[in-house]
């Protein structure tokens, strides 16, 4: 049975897409639960269904069957508008290519989620500045994405993910486009953020990166297996 008050609980999540005449079964009976403050990585090769899983975790997509509870709310019951609201409040996305809007400077990029949350301009600026300083970019507030290095861009993206103070930081291959050194810096930042008590879910195909997390689950052909706690604990 599912716990209605759970922070994060997935029970028997299935996802299938119509593919030609057949149904492609992408996710099979996924069960996953998370405590507040955990640092989880989902490790799987490409085509394993990890992107689909990430979309469902991030409330961008809904499951075909099964139950997903986030912050005590049953996701399948929510309307599109409520899902958008939930995304802006509970989930912070970090994508592989930082995905900054090229016409906005770092500050404006970080302010973006707050605009959709209806925060006033002054408050937006204050919070965006604060979070950019937190990720070490206090001297890059007014730079445009093309004036920033790859690592700096990814920091801006992380700042954007954090600015709404979400319960979960959801990262999809956060180091995929970075060199090793910058990748390690980003991982160090994740570690710090986790130390501060933030819940992080990181999706990757890279075992070395997955090892930074405190708990690793493997996904292969749409099936999830617990990989045991890595390194720590």
């Amino acid at each position: 049975m599912t716990d209605e008050k759970a922070f994060f609980q997935m029970t028997n999540i299935n996802k299938s897409y119509p593919m030609g005449d057949e149904q492609a079964h992408i996710l099979k009976n996924i069960c996953l639960s998370l405590r507040r403050g955990e640092y989880l990585s989902v490790l799987g090769p490409s085509g394993s269904g990890k992107s689909t899983l990430m979309n469902i975790i991030g409330c961008l997509d809904t499951a075909s069957s099964g139950e997903y509870i986030l912050q005590g709310r049953r996701i399948s019951d929510l309307t599109d508008g409520e899902l958008a609201n939930l995304r802006s409040q509970e989930i912070g996305f970090v994508f592989q290519n930082s995905q900054l809007l090229p016409r906005l400077n770092a500050l404006k990029n970080v302010e973006l989620p707050l605009i959709y949350a209806g925060v006033s301009p002054g408050e937006r600026k204050r919070r965006a500045t604060e979070i950019l300083c937190r990720v070490g970019l206090s001297d890059r507030l007014h730079h445009y994405p093309n004036q920033l290095s790859g690592g700096q861009q990814q920091r801006v993206a992380i700042a954007r993910a954090l600015v709404g103070n979400p319960s979960i930081l959801l990262a999809d291959e956060p180091t995929g486009a970075l060199d090793q050194k910058t990748g390690r810096q980003v991982m160090a930042l994740f570690e710090e953020l986790n130390q501060e008590g933030r819940t992080i879910i990181m999706i990757t195909h890279d075992m070395n990166i997955a090892a930074y997390a405190h708990r690793v689950v493997h996904i292969i052909d749409g099936e999830l297996t617990e990989g045991g706690d890595a390194a720590h604990d």
Partner: peptide, 16 residues
């Protein structure tokens, strides 16, 4: 397309 997807991911609703 990327901008639209991103905005939706960070909480924009269709009508916005």
């Amino acid at each position: 397309t990327m901008e639209i997807g991103l905005k939706k991911a960070v909480g924009a609703v269709s009508w916005q």
